[in-house]
């Protein structure tokens, strides 16, 4: 269980870590914890999975990644974990999830996102993925995004209502 100080800490770092030589000491100063306590608590958040990752979140467009593809596969249930593990290791796969099929209309159970610098490049990368993982026998579709209506950053602690969010949808 997280206590009030944990909550305070999570709130303080949600917008970013201080960019100074001793960032954890700096955070501690703001909320009345010492450097060691901050380090121990954040390490525990990582261990328990409350924090998935600590690091930078890039803006796709700024790095030239303008083609955004969601690729979906219909993989037999007994193979889906193995295939998921395997495709998530490809350098150009940015997210990989297993999701429930939606009947005959949408029989896909494995999703991955490929952000690429052009549609051609993304299609090439997908072909490479299919070939190297022997995925050709399985049905698939590639859905490019045409328009992004809304993309909110991660905000976990806001005045009500308090929405949760993800990066890189």
């Amino acid at each position: 269980m997280i206590d009030q100080q944990d909550l305070q800490l999570l709130k303080t770092i949600q917008h970013g870590l201080p960019i100074t030589s001793r960032p954890y000491a700096e955070i501690g100063k703001q909320i009345g914890l010492n450097e060691t306590e901050v380090i121990e608590r954040i390490a525990l958040f990582m261990q328990t999975g409350l924090i998935k990752r600590l690091g930078v979140i890039v803006k796709h467009q700024r790095l030239g990644y303008t083609a955004n593809a969601m690729v979906v596969f219909d993989i037999p249930d007994h193979r889906v974990s193995e295939v998921g593990e395997s495709i998530s290791k490809a350098r150009f796969v940015n997210l990989c999830y297993q999701r429930p099929r939606q009947g005959k209309q949408w029989p896909y159970n494995l999703y991955c996102m490929i952000h690429g610098k052009s549609r051609e490049k993304v299609c090439q990368q997908l072909q490479q993925l299919i070939k190297s993982r022997d995925l050709d026998p399985y049905d698939r579709e590639i859905l490019f995004s045409k328009q992004c209506f809304k993309q909110r950053g991660a905000l976990y602690f806001t005045p009500s209502p308090s929405p949760l969010s993800v990066a890189n949808g």
Partner: peptide, 24 residues
């Protein structure tokens, strides 16, 4: 960060572990 190449530098929280829920 200032010029916006990076949107953020910090933690990515696990929605479900934080007690929340997410779906596509």
């Amino acid at each position: 960060l200032d010029e916006g190449t990076l949107s953020r530098f910090g933690p990515m929280y696990h929605a479900e572990a934080m007690g929340g829920a997410l779906t596509l």
